[in-house]
Structure formats: C-alpha cells, structure tokens
C-alpha cells in the first residue's frame, strides 16, 4: 500500500518535471493530464471515491480548457530561462522553503495515524458517530458538505460563479469594440 503510493508519487513527480521543463506546450499539457489522473488514482487508494470521481471530471475539463488556449496559436518555444542571477536566487529560495517544509513535517502525526484517532473531541468523531443519525446520509462526505458545512458549499458556489463570470467578462468580444470607441472619442477631443 505505502510502496504503491510511493511509486505513484514518483510517477507524478516525473510527470510534473517533464511538464514544467519540456519546450512543446501541447506535450506539457498532456503531462499535466498524466499528473492529474495519477492524483485521481491516489485518491482511490486513499479510500476517497467521491474525490476521485470529481478529480477525473475536473481533469478532463482542465485539459480541454488548456488545449483550447494553446492550440492554433503561435506556440513557438520561448528559448532560454531568466537571467542567471535571478535563477540562482530563486533556486536557493526554493531549497530553503523545502528544508523548512521537511522540518514542519516532523511535528505532524505519522502517516496512517490521523489526528482524530488520538483527540477525542475532534469534530470528525462527531461526524462519524452521529452523522447517520443526525443527517440521514450514509455517505459522510455528502453529509458534511451539504449539512454540517453547508455554508462552506454556498461560499464555494459563489466563488465558482464569480470566477466563471470573470472569465466570461475577460473573454467577451464586445470589450475590444468599446475600447476602440473610447479611443476614437479621445482622438475627437
């Protein structure tokens, strides 16, 4: 189980490195797809079927959006990274963040021993023991997102709606006409 997850994570890290480093944008997007489906399989092994299904759907949509953004555009590979000095500084900063992250993990509970098993008043215990009686939902994930934390879900729907609205407003074709109109108005003055 742990070895299987480790192999899967190695696969995802390799896919992510190829996605970041390759020159061709289309193959880079396909590598992101490989990482996303790997995450979905990992969710299945971690006993989270709801998230695995959602991850597959979202992954397909992300691939469609990204391919729509890059296909039929001038995808000439941008050669060269940034200047040598800024590259060195950013890589050093990344190393520092990595080391601090490893230090933080020492204070976390061990893998396969979640914190709610040792804390008797964790909210998860209430959800597991009384979720079926209080909400009537056999799937506890559903009972949490639609009953115990329904306001969270409402806020999520608001954020999603706002993001889609922003994307549509940015992509709208009429906006360019209005800017040309206003520039003409300025030239008239």
């Amino acid at each position: 189980m742990v070895t299987l997850l480790t192999v899967l994570l190695f696969f995802m890290v390799v896919g992510a490195i190829i996605a970041v480093e390759t020159k061709d944008l289309l193959s880079s997007i396909i590598c992101v797809g490989a990482v996303g489906f790997g995450v979905s399989i990992a969710f299945l092994f971690l006993r989270a079927p709801d998230i695995a299904i959602t991850q597959v759907v979202v992954e397909v949509l992300v691939l469609v959006i990204l391919i729509r953004a890059t296909i039929s555009r001038d995808v000439t590979a941008i050669s060269g990274d940034r200047e040598f000095f800024s590259m060195t500084v950013s890589i050093a900063l990344l190393l520092v963040i990595f080391i601090f992250g490893l230090e933080v993990f020492k204070s976390f509970p061990q893998f396969r021993e979640p914190v709610f098993t040792t804390m008797s008043d964790a909210s998860t215990n209430t959800y597991i023991q009384r979720g079926l009686i209080q909400t009537g939902a056999a799937n506890l994930v559903t009972s949490i997102i639609l009953d115990y934390r329904a306001y969270d879900t409402l806020g999520e729907a608001t954020v999603l709606f706002t993001a889609i609205l922003g994307a549509l407003a940015i992509l709208r074709a009429k906006a360019r006409k209005r800017t040309t109109d206003s520039s003409e108005g300025n030239s008239d003055q």
Partner: peptide, 12 residues
C-alpha cells in the same frame, strides 16, 4: 471545484 474556476479565469 474552486480550482477549476480559478484555472478557467487564469487561462482566459
């Protein structure tokens, strides 16, 4: 799901 919306906004 929120990530999907944010990605759509960034790609736009």
């Amino acid at each position: 799901v929120i990530g999907l919306g944010v990605i759509a906004l960034m790609v736009a």
